[in-house]
């Protein structure tokens, strides 16, 4: 299995859409059997998705990702674990042990996605804030 992790220095890159490098990791039953760092093509999501397809990537673990990029990857058959943050090695180890859902790897605010769609929802949230804070 080919695993791709967009990187920035020794961290998982904050945003997939603009990451400039990926760590390509070959994973077999016995664990990691190969690793290499490669540049990732320009900011156009389609080009990025194609690059990953051409590299034979099966799974992408990344930070923030835009909806078009996510849809393109999904349509290319790539499994995406998004909104993850942390050091490259920690994230890779967590992935290998199936622990990406452990506390500490989710970007702040994950899990409240549905509450933030459009300005209208924000307005609703703002109105409810007084009550929400008080009841916390």
């Amino acid at each position: 299995m080919q695993l791709a992790l967009p990187v920035w220095q020794q961290l998982l890159a904050p945003v997939f859409d603009t990451a400039t490098e990926i760590e390509l990791v070959q994973v077999a039953k016995e664990g990691v059997i190969g690793r290499q760092r490669l540049p990732l093509a320009g900011p156009w999501p389609l080009l990025r998705a194609r690059s990953l397809v051409e590299l034979g990537v099966d799974v992408l673990v990344c930070g923030a990702i835009s909806r078009p990029a996510h849809m393109l990857l999904r349509s290319a058959g790539i499994q995406v674990h998004a909104w993850i943050s942390g050091g490259l090695e920690e994230v890779l180890a967590a992935f290998l042990r199936g622990g990406l859902t452990e506390p500490g790897f989710a970007m702040p605010g994950c899990g409240r996605r549905r509450r933030m769609r459009g300005r209208g929802r924000q307005a609703g949230r703002r109105r409810g804030r007084g009550r929400g804070r008080g009841s916390r």
């Binding site: 890159a13 904050p14 945003v15 603009t18 943050s85 702040p108 605010g109």
Partner: peptide, 19 residues
């Protein structure tokens, strides 16, 4: 949720990182 976290984990802007 934001306080105490690295700015790029919260802000996720296209410029976060290299730019």
């Amino acid at each position: 949720e934001a306080l105490g976290r690295h700015c790029w984990e919260v802000f996720h802007a296209d410029v976060c990182g290299e730019g």
